[in-house]
């Protein structure tokens, strides 16, 4: 098992390669910062923007690190703190809530023995409540690393979804 990485304190060559690749893919264009950060975050195991990565990116794009920090804290899909490998994002907006997403949250909490916002000891799972991600026709729904799992209205289906994550 890979060691549990709490927080990245120094930049690694892998991170540099990741940032360089993503920045190239976005034509070194600082206006595409939001997309760049999303792609970097996708490539980081714990799906967040580590501080040294932000500093490196600011040099790479010749923008202020304050701008990066502002953007990371502003957009709800960007994170400045480590999350889980699989963060289970449960929609917390009305279309899912009226379809009883509260029960879905309770089921997830029970199955994973986890509170909302907590990360499992191995860094694999975390439950978060997020605003509408546009899967209202299949509510209640969960989004994991960009993939939507809908109709999670029974424990059976929730378990199915969790199994697919391994």
């Amino acid at each position: 098992m890979k060691p549990f990485v709490q927080k990245l304190d120094e930049l690694t060559p892998e991170m540099v390669a990741l940032v360089d690749r993503v920045v190239e893919e976005h034509q070194n264009d600082p206006t595409q910062l939001v997309g760049i950060l999303l792609d970097i975050q996708d490539g980081v195991e714990r799906h967040y923007i580590p501080e040294p990565v932000a500093y490196y990116l600011s040099q790479r794009l010749s923008i202020r690190v304050t701008q990066i920090y502002d953007v990371v804290t502003f957009y709800s899909m960007l994170y400045d703190k480590p999350r889980a490998k699989y963060t289970l994002e449960v929609c917390n907006s009305a279309p899912c809530r009226v379809k009883d997403s509260d029960t879905l949250v309770e089921t997830l909490k029970r199955l994973l023995n986890l509170e909302v916002g907590e990360v499992t000891y191995d860094g694999r799972f975390c439950i978060e409540k997020v605003p509408c991600f546009g899967a209202c026709d299949v509510s209640p729904a969960v989004r994991v690393n960009g993939a939507v799992y809908g109709h999670l209205d029974s424990e059976e289906r929730v378990l199915d979804m969790l199994r697919q994550l391994d």
Partner: peptide, 26 residues
């Protein structure tokens, strides 16, 4: 093609423009 990152307010025209420029969507 530009991507948002979870900000409802970016549906507002000028916030969207801010976001397109790589800023927070205020």
């Amino acid at each position: 093609l530009y991507s948002g990152a979870g900000a409802y307010v970016c549906g507002e025209g000028s916030a969207l423009c801010e976001s397109l420029e790589g800023h927070s969507g205020r």
